[in-house]
């Protein structure tokens, strides 16, 4: 009951803050929040691989890019294509990309996995750069209409209104993150954690390790694709450097590391720290990446595992001290 009440309070606070934010902060800051929500969804989808499957992907931008390009191309070529189908199709396309690559990806782990995903990510980047008649190359796809969200019989929401779009993004991202959260609690999700900890043993128990991994790649790809689609809807332009560059793969890794590796909600905290910090630094210098890079090194060296672990360590130390003190009192 205690946990239920705590969760309820957290949800109420979250909804109140998220709901009030655009009215308090103004349009510019609201757009930063849209970026944050999209980025958090992207980071959490990558975290499914990094923290729950135990593989480090350097090419997650591939899925993000597939999602973004799918949305952009659909809206550009098909007149009046509705919003939600575009979003879902983008996710499905990215998930399909994950499935297609999975026969190769499931065979390797560790550094080889990191390098293979890096290779696929770069492959996609170069392909999109070179086939400019489809993707527009460096210039990208732009000038497509952002469709309104039609709820039959209720309303038609204009997505060009930044406050409306903010609410839409937050809802999509929260739903996506919740689905991934519940997935980690399912038996299948537990098998994935088992594969991370000891794949040989899971194999001997009769589970299909490679099939399971393929499913998680597809799932992670799906949500990365949704994040990419949101990016396409938000920016109104999709270019290779924006969605497929190798830095797009590196940023969520930084967010996971800064927030807390091995936890589910750490990456969201990390995304928040990274985006807000970048927004603040951008006001003073153009070289924001220099500062984030330095911060990143400091975090790796001094806060190994990220801020969530730092916090949990402090809580544990506090509790241990309280316990010791109470024992001393008893004695």
């Amino acid at each position: 009951m205690n946990k239920f009440v705590r969760n309820l309070i957290m949800w109420v606070v979250f909804l109140a803050v998220a709901g009030a934010a655009p009215h308090v902060l103004g349009i510019v800051k609201t757009n930063v929040l849209v970026e944050l929500a999209t980025f958090a969804l992207f980071a959490v989808s990558l975290n499914l691989l990094l923290s729950f499957t135990g593989v480090l992907s350097f090419g997650h931008a591939l899925f993000y890019g597939v999602g973004a390009y799918t949305t952009a191309l659909l809206l550009y070529h098909v007149e009046g294509f509705p919003l939600i189908p575009a979003l879902l199709l983008s996710g499905l396309a990215a998930g399909l990309a994950g499935l297609i690559l999975s026969p190769l990806l499931v065979r390797v782990t560790g550094t080889a996995f990191a390098m293979l995903t890096l290779a696929f990510g770069q492959l996609m980047y170069i392909l999109c750069l070179k086939f400019r008649e489809v993707t527009g190359g460096e210039d990208g796809v732009a000038g497509y209409d952002i469709p309104p969200l039609n709820i039959p019989g209720v309303a038609s929401l204009d997505m060009l209104d930044s406050t409306v779009f903010y609410y839409f993004t937050v809802v999509v991202c929260v739903i996506g993150i919740m689905i991934m959260w519940f997935f980690t609690k399912t038996p299948l999700g537990q098998v994935v954690v088992g594969i991370r900890d000891n794949s040989l043993r899971v194999d001997y128990l009769g589970y299909r390790v490679r099939h399971t991994k393929a499913i998680i790649f597809a799932l992670s790809g799906f949500f990365a694709g949704i994040a990419g689609s949101l990016f396409a809807l938000f920016q109104g332009v999709v270019s290779t450097d924006g969605v497929l560059h190798v830095m797009v793969s590196f940023y969520p890794i930084m967010a996971i590391l800064i927030g807390g590796i091995g936890t589910f909600f750490g990456p969201i905290l990390g995304s928040g720290i990274l985006i807000v910090l970048e927004d603040m630094i951008m006001r003073y210098t153009e070289r924001a990446e220099l500062v984030t890079g330095l911060l990143f090194i400091i975090v790796v060296l001094y806060v190994p595992g990220g801020f969530v672990w730092l916090w949990m360590g402090l809580v544990a130390r506090f509790k241990a001290r309280k316990l010791r003190m109470s024992k001393e009192v008893e004695a």
């Binding site: 480090l56 590196f250 984030t292 990143f296 090194i297 790796v300 060296l301 190994p304």
Partner: peptide
């Protein structure tokens, strides 16, 4: 390995910037 990869990634970022 994740630690090494991430640290050197950070160094690469800092050098390029």
């Amino acid at each position: 390995h994740i630690g090494d990869l991430l640290l050197t990634l950070g160094i690469a970022l800092v050098i390029s910037e």
